[in-house]
Design a binder for these strands. Structure first.
Lengths: 82, 82
DNA sequence: ATAATTTATAGCTGTTTAGCCATAAATTGA
DNA sequence: TCAATTTATGGCTAAACAGCTATAAATTAT
C-alpha cells in the first residue's frame, strides 16, 4: 500500500487517502500537530508551495512515512495501481 | 538503498548523497531543472521551508523518487542503517 | 602552498505560505 | 428536504522562499 509520489498533486491524494482511512476530518487531523484546517485543505488540493516542515508534520499526524530512493526502472503497470 | 525520511534534515542527506553519487555539483544538478545553486545549498542544509514544487524538481533532477506509505512497525535497527 | 572548483551567505524583490478568523460552498446524515 | 459536518475560500499579517547576482568560505586538486 505504498504510493509513488512525483508531484504535489499525487502527494495530496496520498494524504487525503490516509486521512480518510483514519476517519479524520481535516480539522481533527490538523489539531494533532497544530495545522490549520485551511492549510490542510490547500495541501490536499496540491498546493505546490507547501513547506517541507508542514508536510512532515502532516505525515506524522497521519502515521505516514516518506521514503526517498533512486528511481526504479519499474514497469508503468505496477505503479499506476495507484 | 532507500532512505526513510522524517525531517528536512534527513531529506537533505538523501539528496546530497545522491547528488554526489552522480558526481554532480550543486550548480550542475541545478541547471538541469533551473534550480539556483543557492537554493540547492539551502535545501541540502535542511531548510525547513523548502517548497514541495522545488523538492520535486530536485528529485527529478537527481533521478530520485518519493514513496509515501503508512508507517511500518519496523525495528529501529534496520532503518538506522542510514 | 596556490589555484581552481564548489558550497555557503547575503542583499534585494516579488510571490506565497501558514496562522488566525470568518464564511461560503459542498458533502453527508437524519 | 433540512440540518449538521466538512471542506474550500478569502482577507490580513508576519515570515520565508526562490530567482538573481555577487562574493566569501571551504574543499579539492595540482
Amino acid at each position: 500500500m505504498e504510493q509513488l509520489v512525483h508531484s504535489p498533486k499525487s502527494l495530496a491524494s496520498a494524504i487525503t487517502r490516509q486521512r480518510k482511512a483514519k476517519k479524520l476530518s481535516q480539522t481533527e487531523a490538523g489539531s494533532i500537530f497544530n495545522i490549520e484546517q485551511s492549510t490542510f485543505s490547500s495541501i490536499e488540493n496540491g498546493a505546490p508551495g507547501t513547506r517541507l516542515e508542514t508536510l512532515f508534520r502532516i505525515l506524522a499526524a497521519l502515521d505516514l512515512e516518506m521514503v526517498i530512493r533512486p528511481k526504479t526502472v519499474s514497469t508503468h503497470k505496477t505503479e499506476e495501481s495507484w
